[in-house]
């Protein structure tokens, strides 16, 4: 796939996101036709349709926007700083920590004490418990060792998923169900406040990421070359790592583990934007947001009234589309290795 200019990519990505959002608002078991949506919203509160749109569907769209964007953004950052196209937000064990935190919360019934915040808070705490040791264990003489982080991260992932399995093995049936569903990921979140906090953090990180775009462009040539170009690589790596961890942590703590978005979206977008992170950041963000909203709509409607875990859809859909694009790329004779 050839590189496309920004004047084509940016409107295309916006259009995709809008289309995904509108489709999400219009689909569901209540069967509200597309044309009526604006009228219902304009008429204001009172009708049951208004309640469905604003209290059930809109929160999912906003959360999908925030989490899809956050995971894609974190993926771009991590793939850029590790110079490894296989790294994704979950490689570093952050999600494993989140799952462990949530599982412990369910087993100890903390969510009965604080129904709104206990699960997200323990998920976030679990993520932090992974990130902080990961960061300090791999700090040697003020240098962050990238290979070390990657290896320790993968190992932490294994350890925490084993611990989650241990908890699953000894927990009761109803707890088992809650834990499994939390792990498989869902965009259902009753608290508007938490949704808006996540959306706000994500948007701030998107803005901040642009300060790192030239840094990541230079880093794509290698750490030594980046130093030659006047980049303080150690400081940049630390800040990027913490920002990517924050984005992943808040996503996992609110929605569980939604895989593949942070791996495939940056990859897919890079085929069209090229290496330049100034294009990569915004296009990945919009595409990732649209992709997750779209997958969530599918998860809700495909086997309605059963709701499928959205992580299953992102995996199946994202993986197949990606393999298709990759094979076409090879057939058309362009060499791989976009990073």
């Amino acid at each position: 796939m050839n590189r496309r200019p920004m004047r084509f990519l940016l409107p295309a990505a916006c259009l995709f996101l809008t289309a995904a959002a509108v489709t999400a608002m219009a689909s569901g078991s209540a069967g509200i036709p597309l044309k009526k949506i604006f009228m219902i919203i304009l008429d204001g509160k009172g009708t049951p349709e208004y309640g469905i749109l604003m209290d059930i569907r809109l929160p999912r769209v906003v959360l999908g926007f925030a989490v899809g964007g956050a995971l894609s953004l974190a993926g771009v950052m991590l793939q850029g700083m590790f110079r490894n196209p296989l790294v994704e937000p979950y490689t570093l064990g952050i999600s494993g920590g989140g799952a462990l935190g949530a599982a412990l919360c369910i087993v100890f019934k903390l969510h009965y004490l604080l129904p709104m915040t206990a699960l997200p808070a323990s998920g976030f705490l679990g993520s932090c418990l992974v990130v902080v040791p990961l960061y300090f264990l791999n700090m040697r003489q003020n240098v962050l060792r990238m290979q070390g982080i990657l290896l320790t991260g993968v190992m932490t992932s294994f350890i925490s998923s084993s611990l989650v399995f241990l908890i699953l093995a000894i927990s009761k049936t109803d707890e088992l169900h809650s834990i499994v569903f939390w792990i498989m990921g869902s965009l259902e979140e009753p608290s508007w406040m938490l949704i808006l906090i996540v959306a706000a953090i994500t948007l701030v990180c998107l803005l901040l990421s642009y300060f790192f775009a030239p840094v990541l462009n230079a880093l794509s040539l290698g750490e030594e070359e980046a130093v030659h170009l006047g980049i303080d690589t150690e400081r940049a790596k630390k800040q990027l790592f913490l920002m990517a961890s924050l984005l992943t942590g808040i996503s996992v703590s609110l929605t569980g583990i939604i895989g593949f978005v942070g791996l495939i979206v940056p990859h897919f977008v890079r085929m069209m934007t090229g290496y330049d992170h100034r294009r990569l950041f915004i296009i990945s963000f919009l595409t990732g947001a649209g992709f997750l909203i779209f997958c969530d709509t599918l998860a809700r409607t495909a086997l309605s009234p059963i709701e499928l875990p959205v992580g299953v859809i992102t995996g199946i859909l994202g993986g197949s589309v990606f393999i298709y694009v990759l094979t076409r790329r090879h057939i058309s004779g362009r060499s791989g290795g976009s990073l």
């Binding site: 040539l221 290698g222 070359e225 090229g274 290496y275 976009s338």
Partner: peptide, 11 residues
């Protein structure tokens, strides 16, 4: 610096 590090990415 003109080093021996070859760029590996499509640029």
């Amino acid at each position: 610096v003109v080093s021996q590090n070859m760029p590996l990415i499509a640029m």
